[in-house]
Amino acid sequence: MASRTAFTGRLDDVWAPFSIIDVSFVLSYHESLSYACREAMSLGCPAIVTRVGGLPENVEPGVDGWVVPPREPAAIEAILRAIVQEPGCVRAMGRSARG
């Protein structure tokens, strides 16, 4: 995974990186609301979010993203495995996220 991860620091234009991202993650233990989640989704990137604060309000599970319990990596793993088995779902969910 490390070879496929890039920590870019601050970006003024997020369109370029989001054009190559399949899924965004907002995995927080405490969150009131997430602009990062909404921005990613507006760029057509479905989101995996934790069930904390206002994060679940951003996502319609199975339509434009996924909601997982906090501190449960097995739930995230299950989603990633499902994506590998059915990669077309990400494109469809991305279209829904954009809308």
Score class of each variant (00 low, 15 high):
45 C>L: 00
89 C>I: 01
8 T>I: 09
82 A>I: 05
3 S>L: 11
61 P>L: 05
62 G>L: 03
99 G>N: 12
20 I>D: 10
7 F>I: 11
21 I>H: 01
80 L>G: 10
55 L>G: 00
98 R>M: 04
13 D>K: 03
98 R>Q: 15
73 P>L: 15
9 G>W: 11
96 S>N: 09
43 L>S: 07
16 A>I: 02
63 V>C: 01
16 A>R: 09
88 G>Y: 03
85 Q>S: 12
64 D>E: 08
32 S>Y: 15
48 I>F: 04
54 G>W: 11
58 N>Q: 05
98 R>P: 05
82 A>N: 14
57 E>P: 00
16 A>D: 07
85 Q>Y: 00
14 V>L: 11
47 A>P: 01
8 T>V: 11
79 I>E: 02
57 E>R: 15
42 S>I: 00
80 L>M: 13
3 S>H: 13
73 P>I: 15
22 D>C: 06
33 L>T: 07
45 C>G: 01
39 E>S: 12
67 V>I: 04
70 P>Q: 08
66 W>F: 08
5 T>Y: 08
5 T>W: 04
86 E>A: 12
9 G>N: 09
72 E>Y: 11
52 V>Y: 08
43 L>F: 04
25 F>V: 14
16 A>C: 08
86 E>H: 12
19 S>R: 14
8 T>G: 02
19 S>A: 13
13 D>N: 14
8 T>Q: 02
70 P>K: 01
73 P>Y: 09
8 T>C: 05
19 S>N: 06
2 A>L: 12
9 G>E: 05
53 G>R: 08
48 I>Y: 07
33 L>N: 14
27 L>C: 06
57 E>W: 07
10 R>A: 05
26 V>Y: 15
17 P>W: 09
2 A>K: 12
13 D>S: 14
93 M>P: 01
9 G>P: 01
78 A>Y: 07
35 Y>S: 11
45 C>Q: 03
93 M>K: 04
64 D>H: 14
49 V>E: 00
35 Y>H: 11
6 A>W: 15
66 W>L: 10
15 W>P: 15
95 R>L: 02
59 V>P: 00
47 A>T: 13
56 P>S: 13
69 P>T: 01
17 P>K: 10
4 R>Q: 08
58 N>T: 05
18 F>L: 12
29 Y>K: 15
1 M>S: 11
2 A>M: 12
81 R>F: 09
77 E>F: 14
16 A>H: 04
32 S>D: 15
40 A>N: 06
83 I>K: 05
12 D>I: 13
7 F>H: 09
55 L>E: 00
96 S>M: 12
82 A>R: 13
87 P>L: 07
73 P>M: 15
62 G>T: 10
38 R>M: 12
35 Y>D: 14
42 S>R: 06
81 R>N: 13
81 R>W: 12
69 P>D: 05
17 P>R: 14
16 A>K: 08
61 P>I: 03
87 P>H: 09
24 S>V: 11
23 V>L: 07
1 M>F: 10
67 V>K: 02
75 A>N: 04
51 R>S: 08
5 T>L: 01
